[in-house]
Design a protein around this nucleic acid. Structure first.
Lengths: 146, 146
DNA sequence: AAGCTAGTGTTGACATGTCAACAACGGGAG
DNA sequence: CTCCCGTTGTTGACATGTCAACACTAGCTT
């Protein structure tokens, strides 16, 4: 017999979700401005940049960044049209893709630092890691079956 | 001269974002299963259900749920096709919309409790509220200009 | 009244994401 | 070898979201 959250608890939830979303959006805007890459582009190029010869089978790439096959396929189509990658059997990073990725890395990590890490005290960051662990554990154990 | 996040800090960031996204997705799936509503539908219907006569001007509705006009307009078009709302000058909740909303409320709040509130200790919830406040304050002051 | 301007609402083009269907490939099992 | 069957990759339909352009309206101003 489930109880309902209190008003306060619900408010924490809503502000948590809204704040996270806003943070994600700000970082995406910055990334776009700094490099012309979307977060998805960045994730793909990060994985390729760390792979031998900057190439991976789509299935391996999908597993690496935890994307569904269909999502990846659609996204690769868009990236291919922009000349960031090309497809043989493997997905292969084009020069333009690697260049954009390298241009993106430093500003992106700086932004994470500026908008997230530096805004929190070390104690707050620890507490957040703790909360994240609890949520992940619950997702795995209690509701992985959803 | 911005420094970069440490490996640990970056990991906290990534797991934080991924966990939040997973949590949002699980709640959306539940909501859909319980009521056939998307989170967007739910937000619109919540605002309308609290308005006198269950009707609002689009601009007021947009302000209430913090959406851009265009986003709202597109979404209302989809909701109208499904018979959840209708449009005159005001956006007006249809019976079907209110019914679906009422069916959604209890299970949705229960799910928030189950997947979020009950997974955290009161101390963790307080700490999270604290972190959220810090992030919001930073967004408002430091980077509202972005 | 005529015109300016700010706010409002819609639209089209496009990016992103999910789901279901499909084709193609690659081993075993017989 | 041929038939299955699971994996893989793509595709189409659709939901969601942003941005820019547009039309429309409502006050003001003159």
């Amino acid at each position: 017999m489930p109880r309902l959250p209190t008003r306060d608890q619900l408010q924490v939830w809503r502000e948590f979700i809204e704040t996270t979303e806003a943070l994600r959006a700000r970082l995406a805007t910055r990334l776009q401005a700094d490099s012309g890459l979307s977060p998805g582009d960045y994730a793909v190029l990060l994985a390729l940049s760390e792979a031998p010869e900057h190439r991976l089978r789509p299935s391996v790439l999908a597993a690496t960044i935890s994307w569904e096959r269909s999502r990846l396929s659609h996204h690769l189509g868009r990236m291919e049209r922009r000349g960031l990658i090309r497809r043989e059997r493997d997905v292969i990073a084009e020069e333009a893709g690697l260049t954009a990725f390298h241009a993106a890395t430093f500003p992106h990590l700086s932004a994470v630092r500026e908008l997230f890490v530096d805004v929190l005290t070390p104690e707050q960051l620890d507490a957040l890691a703790d909360v994240t662990r609890a949520l992940r554990a619950s997702a795995r154990d209690g509701h992985g079956l959803d």
